[in-house]
Structures are given as C-alpha cells and as structure tokens.
Amino acid sequence: MDQEKPRAHHDMGGIAKFMCEPVDIEPHGLTEFDKTVDAIRQILGAKKIMSTDELRRAIEAIPEDQYLRLSYYRKWIRSITDNLLAKGVFTEAELRAALEEP
C-alpha cells in the first residue's frame, strides 16, 4: 500500500518505514527558539494573518528529506516565513536585508 498510492510524506499513519523505529519517550524541554517560534505562530493566528491550515500546508510543502531531518520548530519557522512572504507581509528583498543585519 505504501508504494502504490501517492501518499503525501507527512501523512504517516501506519506506514511501514517507521513500524520498527523506537519512540524516544524521554522528555525534551522546549528551547527559547522553540517557544519564540510557537509564540509567533499564535500571534499570527490571533491577528488572522496566518491560519493553522496555512501553517500546516507550508510545512507539508517541505521536501521529504528536510521534513524528516528538520526539528519541529525549524519546520514551523520555515513555514511561517513562506506564508509571510507569500502574503506580502514582507518581501524577499526585505528578508534578505534583515538576514544581512548583524
């Protein structure tokens, strides 16, 4: 079933690839980075700038190798940036300039 159907890579229920992979059940506290990204998402949601489904869609658009490699909140900041660029909240030129700032 895994191979025949065009399953999206985020759609993980029951897929064979992870059936024998152990679950890391240790607690991992959130970092300041994680909490900051999470807070941005909530503020953008409350201000109706970006919906939960828009956040998810741009996470799902991350290519599979990176989707599996990036941490949870690294995927989020990438999706948030993708959405804010697409919505014209800031331009790519503005983002490049901000990335250049020390």
Partner: peptide, 18 residues
C-alpha cells in the same frame, strides 16, 4: 480519492482510510 497526486493540496483525510 488522491488529490495529492494532482497538485498542491492540504487535506485532513489520512491516506490509510481512503
């Protein structure tokens, strides 16, 4: 249905239930 085969979509129906 497998709309993900046709272009960019966002769907909340897991593949294993189709």
């Amino acid at each position: 249905d497998w709309p993900e085969a046709k272009g960019p979509v966002h769907i909340r129906t897991p593949h294993y239930l189709r």
